[in-house]
Structures are given as C-alpha cells and as structure tokens.
Design a binder for these strands. Structure first.
Lengths: 201, 201
DNA sequence: CGAGAAACTTGTACTCGGTACAAATTTTGT
DNA sequence: ACAAAATTTGTACCGAGTACAAGTTTCTCG
C-alpha cells in the first residue's frame, strides 16, 4: 500500500532538509540558493519546492510543534487548573526536557544567529508567532474568541518570545547558561503575572 | 542652490506614490507590478527603486511617524508623569485629532484590507512594530535597555496593535464606528493596566 | 507477471522584485 | 555657454517561486 514510495519520500525530504541545514549553518540563509540545495541533495529545484513550499521552511520545520505543545498543555491539564498555570508548567517541562524552545545553549544560539541575520527568516518566525497567538486565543476562549482573548494570547506569546530573545542575548554576550536560564524564567514569570492580572475581572 | 532639482524630485516622488496608491486600492498590492507603477508615473522602473527601496514602502510611508509620535509623547510629557500615562494621553490626543493610528473608519478599514490581503505587507507592518518596540524600550530605559524594558515596550505595542485590529474587526463586521471606538479604548485600557502592573516593583 | 493507472520528478520557460553598472540626460555653478 | 555633479535610464543580470507538459518510478489488479 505504498510502503516503498512513502519511505523514499521521507528519505528524500529528510535528505533535502539535512543538506539545506548544513549549507545554511556553513554560509547563512540568504547566501545559499535553492538550486545549490537541489544539486547537493541530487534532486531538481522543482522537487525541493514539492516538499517545501518556501525557502524558509527548509530552516523552520518545527512550525506545527509550537501549536501542538500549546494545545496539548491546555487540553491535558488537570481539571480546574488555570490556563496560564498550565502554560507555566509547560515551560518547566520543556526546560527539564532541554527542549530548544525553552533552552539556550551553543546550538540554539547558533541557530538563532542565522535567523537574526536574515530578514525573511525573522519575518517567518514572527508569522509563526502570530499563528500561535490566533490558535491560542481559540484554545482559551473557543472559536468565538474576542479581543481580550487575543490580547491575552498575544501577551503570552510575546512574553515567551521576549524571554527567549533576552536569554539568547545574555548567553551570546558571554553570560553563563545558568544566567541565561535565570533571565528566561524571570521574564516568563513577570510576563505571565501581568497576563494573570489581565485575564481576571 | 538646487531649488528646481529638489522640487522636481519631490514632485516625482509624490507622483509615484500617488499612482501606486491608486493602483493598489484598485487591484490590491500583489497584483500591481513595479513596472506598471513606473509606466503609469511616466518614469523608469529604476527610478521607482531610487525613491522607494522596496515595494512595501510605496504603501507604508508612515514608518517614521510611529516612532516620532511615541518619542515626542514621552519626551514632552509633563515632569513626573508616568510614561504609560503619557502614552495613554497620546491615544486620546490621536483620537481627538482623528489620526488614522487611533481611528477606524471606511478609509482606514479599506487600507487595512489591502494590508491584510498581502503577506509581504503584513510582514512589513510587523517589522515596523518591532522597530517601534526597540525604540520604545530605549526611550523608557535608556540605551542599556534590559529585558524587562523590552517586555514592557512589547506589551505596549502589542496592546495598541491588538486594540486596533479588534476595532477594525468590529467595524468591518458591521459594528458602528462608535462601537469600534469603544472596543479600541477598552482594550487599550486593559492592556495598559497590565503593563502598569508589570512595570512596578 | 505484466499493463495501465497513479504518483512523483524533471526540464523548460516564465514572472516579478531587486541589484549592478555604465551610458544618457538634466540641472547647476561659474 | 560649458564643464561638473546629480539624476534618470537601459540593459543585463540574479534568485525565489509558478505553470505546465513530458518523463520516470511505483503501485494495483487482473
């Protein structure tokens, strides 16, 4: 029932992605062309576009994971738990698991440096954030989410993004991983506290 | 001293901008090419790029105004006034002046519809917002702005953006201008209240 | 197994935003 | 009126992304 075909596709997709990642790390995002990636992956340019609709997806392939994590943290939270507490717990869980969304080390900073150097990657990251906001608003308030729900969702994502960016800044500026981590947690707590005040009433 | 040259330049720039705006309103942003704009303005494609570095600038030419307004509101505020109070006062001032950044009517909604229909325009709007956040953080905390300052600045801009977007949504969904305006103000007040809680301590 | 259908890949040719650069034109100061 | 400076233009180019038809591989089913 399409075993071989499927495995070949997965393999091809993975090969393209790997090759692209390696090239991007070596020379930056803008400096690598799709044609180069195609050649290095022994595939045609068209095939690259078959698997990845835009160039940015070759570097940002964890798009859905963001929404998944937020969704599951809320859906599977203990009965009666405040949504913001559930997200705060998610932060701790991801830190414990050394998940890249809640951790700053040489690898993630290297990754982030490449994003920061490319306008189109930065734009795409913001885009993913906006999608997460919308999804989160729906998660929090149902399909008829209102402005307040969107503001709450926006602040949660903003807090996460800002805390992460600040941790990267600290780490890249020579701070220890411990210090970067402390910065991350402190900003998360501050931001989430503000959101709690907003959601009440 | 270059009178004629300067006035010609201003005239040309204005003509290109006007022609582009008209075309964008008629057919949307993506559907209009730079070459068309150049032809309609009786100028070469290269000249268009001489005046506007990217296509998006042809539609979003109030970039600096955002930063200007924020800067002046803070710089010229009464001595001892809280920065957030100063920005809250700016909102009222802009509303009184019917400034498009704080007002929703047929014209501004038409303008937003075009932005919303174009991925690259939306990206550019977010970009401008991010620049405003950075500028605001510096404004609030000086050139050595820290994570908290950036979080505060981010929340202020997010609140404004969300309140505006929500007002547009209400208005475009058939709500009266009065109702849209009330939505705008309510979200601004909620968001700013949360920011006040964040900034203290 | 073999043949035709379905799925995937490829080449080609194209559009559009944007850049490089040198030639042509216009404006300016003298 | 003339040379220098600033502006505009044409031409040629690059890279992302699309359209489409033709080629190749894999699957399905008799």
């Amino acid at each position: 029932m399409g075993e071989l075909r499927d495995s070949k596709k997965r393999e091809t997709r993975q090969r393209i992605s790997d090759v692209a990642t390696k090239l991007f790390f070596a020379r930056g995002f803008e400096a690598v062309t799709i044609e180069e990636i195609a050649a290095a992956a022994k595939v045609s340019k068209m095939t690259v576009f078959n698997y990845f609709a835009r160039k940015e997806e070759l570097f940002l392939d964890r798009e859905d994971e963001v929404k998944q994590l937020l969704h599951r943290a809320l859906a599977e939270r203990p009965k009666g738990q405040d949504p913001i507490d559930a997200l705060r717990a998610l932060v701790d869980r991801l830190r414990a698991e050394k998940h890249p969304f809640a951790r700053v080390d040489d690898q993630t900073v290297g990754w982030w440096r490449i994003v920061a150097a490319s306008a189109s990657l930065k734009a795409r990251v913001r885009d993913i954030g906006d999608e997460a906001v919308e999804a989160l608003a729906v998660e929090l308030a149902g399909p008829r989410a209102d402005g307040l729900a969107r503001l709450v969702a926006g602040m949660i994502v903003l807090t996460w993004r800002t805390a992460y960016a600040e941790a990267v800044r600290v780490f890249a500026g020579g701070g220890s991983a411990r210090k970067a981590s402390a910065t991350f947690v402190e900003l998360i707590d501050r931001g989430f506290a503000a959101v709690r005040g907003l959601a009440d009433r």
